[in-house]
């Protein structure tokens, strides 16, 4: 008879014995050796029925099909753009998926996305060799102008978004800012300078305290304290099936940001050393 030897939601380290017996099913982050199931990653144990998996707490972003992410254009090619994804692999945005306009042969592609531009894209395909295809087709996918880019650990993105986007929409309402969260850990933030600082501090606070429960309440009291306003926690159940709730700011970001710093490029707001353009800083 099988037996699970760890508690649900405990921290497991690589090589730790999780369960004995053949009737426990090893899932993500675990492996079976002989009759026992061991952990192969650092993370939180998640037991559902007989299935054991590990929810990772750390690690760099690994591109996955269907993710909505923020990338930076690093090269303009003959028929597309190469995009840096805050990961070990860069993505390819082809002309066909990059714009819906007609583009004449030999046209200057920097007109659409130039080097250094930040764009919100979705991952349309990832091959076994980790060649990543990107697409701009989908709601809310666009070039990001103005604002700034923050960086958090990609494993903490679900906490930044919150249940049905509760966390991110709370910050957006409290600071009157526009926020887009990419699943690769890059966050675009655009607001008045005073509010921008508050929103940035709130996001950093979430990233640092992501493993604490009752975080939404804590962030709420922080926001109430600094803004001096009453803050409501809003859940948006109508966005079900789309866990990247940052996208809904797309609707109100059309039209009302004309004339502002619309054609500026987002500022990078993270330590340059912690940036990951491969070997460039070695």
């Amino acid at each position: 008879m099988g037996e699970i030897t760890v508690e649900d939601k405990a921290v497991a380290v690589p090589g730790e014995l999780l369960a004995k017996g053949m009737d426990c099913i090893p899932s993500y982050g675990t492996y079976r050796e002989g009759e026992n199931v061991y952990s192969s990653r650092l993370g939180l144990v998640n037991v559902s029925g007989k299935v054991i998996k590990i929810i990772p707490l750390t690690g760099v972003y690994n591109p996955k099909r269907g993710d909505t992410i923020i990338g930076r254009v690093i090269d303009v090619l003959v028929s597309g753009w190469r995009v840096e994804l805050n990961s070990a692999y860069s993505g390819m945005l082809s002309l066909k998926d990059g714009t819906s306009e007609f583009v004449a042969r030999g046209a200057d592609l920097t007109k659409y996305y130039n080097l250094g531009d930040y764009i919100m894209v979705s991952v349309s395909n990832v091959t076994s060799q980790k060649l990543v295809d990107l697409s701009m087709r989908g709601p809310g996918l666009r070039k990001l102008s103005g604002g700034q880019i923050l960086k958090v650990n990609p494993n903490k993105v679900p906490r930044v978004i919150g249940k049905h986007g509760s966390m991110v929409s709370m910050i957006k309402n409290a600071t009157n800012s526009k926020i887009l969260v990419g699943q690769n850990g890059l966050i675009w933030l655009n607001a008045e300078p005073k509010d921008e600082v508050i929103a940035r501090n709130a996001i950093n606070m979430i990233a640092e305290n992501s493993h604490i429960s009752g975080l939404t309440e804590k962030v709420k009291s922080f926001l109430e304290e600094v803004t001096g306003k009453k803050v409501e926690i809003v859940e948006r159940p109508e966005n079900e099936g789309n866990d990247d709730n940052g996208e809904n700011s797309h609707d109100n970001s059309h039209g009302n940001n004309h004339g502002e710093r619309n054609y500026d490029r987002p500022r990078r707001n993270f330590d340059r050393n912690s940036d990951r353009p491969g070997n460039r800083n070695r």
Binding site: P14, G15, G29, S40, L42, G43, L57, G59, V60
Partner: peptide
């Protein structure tokens, strides 16, 4: 290496 979240069989 474990702290970096890499897949590892053991320490």
């Amino acid at each position: 290496l474990a702290d970096a979240g890499l897949p590892m069989k053991d320490l």
